[in-house]
Simulated assay, not measured.
Amino acid sequence: MSVRLLHPSIQNGIRAGDSEHAGGMLTCKCSDRPVKVNVSGGIAHNHACGCTKCWKPEGAAFSVVAVAPSENVSVAENGDKLAVVDPSALIQRHACSACGTHMFGPVEREHAFQGLSFIHPELLDGNWPEPGFAAFVSSVIEGGVDPSEMEGIRTKLKDLGLEPYDCLSPALMDYLATWAAKKSGVLRQ
Rank of each mutant, 00 (worst) to 15 (best):
M1F: 00
M1Y: 02
S2R: 09
R4V: 03
P8K: 08
I10D: 00
I10A: 02
Q11M: 11
G13W: 05
I14W: 06
R15N: 14
R15W: 01
A16C: 00
G17I: 15
G17A: 10
D18F: 06
E20A: 15
G23H: 09
M25F: 11
L26D: 06
T27V: 15
T27P: 13
C28L: 07
C28T: 08
K29Q: 12
K29F: 15
S31V: 10
S31N: 15
D32H: 13
P34V: 10
V35L: 02
N38T: 05
V39G: 10
V39N: 05
S40W: 00
S40T: 15
S40Y: 08
G42A: 01
I43G: 08
A44G: 01
C49G: 11
T52W: 00
K53S: 03
W55C: 05
K56G: 08
P57C: 00
E58R: 12
G59H: 02
A60L: 01
A61Q: 09
F62M: 01
S63G: 15
S63T: 12
V67L: 10
P69E: 12
P69V: 06
S70L: 07
N72I: 01
S74D: 12
S74F: 05
A76H: 12
E77Y: 12
N78T: 14
N78V: 13
N78M: 10
G79S: 03
D80M: 04
L82I: 13
D86A: 15
D86W: 11
P87K: 13
S88F: 11
A89T: 05
A89P: 03
Q92R: 08
A95T: 07
A95W: 03
C96A: 06
A98T: 13
C99P: 11
G100D: 03
M103F: 14
M103G: 11
V107Y: 07
V107S: 13
E108F: 02
R109P: 00
E110W: 11
E110T: 14
Q114F: 00
G115S: 15
G115D: 08
L116T: 04
S117L: 03
S117E: 07
E122S: 04
L124I: 00
D125R: 04
W128D: 14
P129G: 10
P131E: 03
P131D: 10
G132N: 07
F133R: 10
A134Y: 07
F136V: 03
S138R: 14
S139K: 09
I141C: 11
G144H: 06
V145Q: 00
E149P: 12
E149I: 07
G152Y: 05
R154W: 02
T155D: 02
K156F: 01
K156R: 11
K156L: 01
D159I: 06
G161S: 02
G161L: 06
L162R: 06
D166Y: 05
L168E: 13
L168W: 11
S169N: 08
S169I: 04
S169E: 04
A171E: 15
A171S: 15
T178I: 07
W179C: 09
S184K: 12
S184V: 00
S184A: 13
G185N: 03
G185W: 04
V186F: 08
L187A: 12
Q189C: 04
